[in-house]
Design a protein around this nucleic acid. Structure first.
Length: 306
DNA sequence: CCCCAGGGCCATA
DNA sequence: TATGGCCATGGG
């Protein structure tokens, strides 16, 4: 699926990615603009700014759209043509442009409890976190705490240990490198309101990345989601929720369910008319008709919460 | 002051 | 194998 790179049109510092069918820039941006203080991108009127790094070279991009394209502009950094292609590839992953949603919408239409989603959330895609290390740290931070506090902890971490680019007087932060976090003490992270456990998990994960024990490229090589899950579950601090979340958001795996997720559970309780959390069997059977589209059902159920 | 947030580890039986 | 306590803190 991700082998195919979208048709892109590179013109100096501008990259145009043709919009796929069933795509809505506004719906995707609504996800980015849920009212949380995210430090890794900046929303403006009609565009999103994000800093990126490609083997040591930093750049700042803006993403907006016109009638037919996502329009990516390079605001900072001199990039060669092949590097511009990588920028296009990043945005394509970030907005999940390569996926054909038609089969998913056909499945939604077959369930009268869900068919309303096809129109109401039309064109919403799985907004990714392409950096696996960042995705895993974000999961650890977010475990069992409310999202606004999680964002506050992430910001403290990023502002203290990340790097940044300056553009029009504003700082645009990049997530800290594994090598930096790998060398920290538990106490250093506790100062940033990490719990002791989460500090240990984060440092442990950073060490595995720094030493090459864990990498996105190694996971991508694997045959199926099952193998990737079992690799991730061996990491301390990674349980079923984190492993599935990461595979969905960072590797674009289509068949993941964030078991244990409170948002997922409450949306299913409402749909099934329960006054309690659904059991894991009830979750399984609900997802059963959506084989190969579990990740998308998962994010559309999240979307239905607000 | 209570409960619970986009969980997971660890001690106990 | 299963169950319950614990963690950090802010918001409802």
């Amino acid at each position: 699926m991700n082998e195919v790179v979208r048709k892109i049109n590179i013109d100096n510092r501008t990259i145009r990615l043709t919009k796929p069918d069933n795509y809505s820039f506004a719906e995707c941006n609504k996800f980015l603009d849920r009212g949380y203080d995210d430090c890794l991108y900046t929303l403006e009127e009609n565009r999103v700014l994000k800093p990126l790094k490609f083997h040591g070279k930093k750049t700042l991009i803006s993403v907006s759209d016109d009638a037919d394209n996502l329009v990516v502009e390079v605001l900072l950094g001199d990039l060669r043509r092949d590097e511009l292609k990588k920028v296009g590839r990043f945005v394509s992953l970030w907005f999940d442009l390569e996926r054909n949603l038609k089969p998913f919408y056909q499945l939604l239409n077959q369930d009268e409890r869900l068919s309303y989603m096809v129109e109401r959330y039309h064109g919403l895609r799985l907004m990714g976190i392409p950096d696996l290390f960042e995705a895993m740290c974000w999961c650890v931070i977010g475990q069992q705490i409310n999202l606004s506090f999680a964002h506050s902890v992430k910001r403290q971490l990023v502002e203290k240990y990340g790097s940044y680019l300056k553009y029009e007087g504003q700082r645009h932060y990049l997530f800290p490198k594994p090598e930096i976090l790998a060398g920290l003490s538990v106490e250093a992270l506790r100062e940033l309101q990490f719990s002791r456990r989460k500090a240990e998990y984060t440092i442990g994960i950073a060490r595995q990345f720094a030493e090459g024990m864990l990498s996105k490229s190694a996971l991508v090589e694997m045959e199926n989601t099952e193998q990737m899950l079992s690799t991730l579950l061996d990491v301390r601090g990674v349980g079923p929720w984190t492993a599935n979340y990461v595979l969905m958001k960072s590797l674009q795996r289509p068949d993941c369910i964030t078991y244990g997720d409170t948002g997922l559970q409450s949306s299913l309780s409402a749909l099934l008319g329960l006054d309690r959390k659904p059991t894991s069997e009830e979750v399984e059977s609900f997802f059963d008709p959506f084989s190969g589209w579990e990740s998308y059902l998962n994010i559309y159920l999240w979307r239905s919460l607000h």
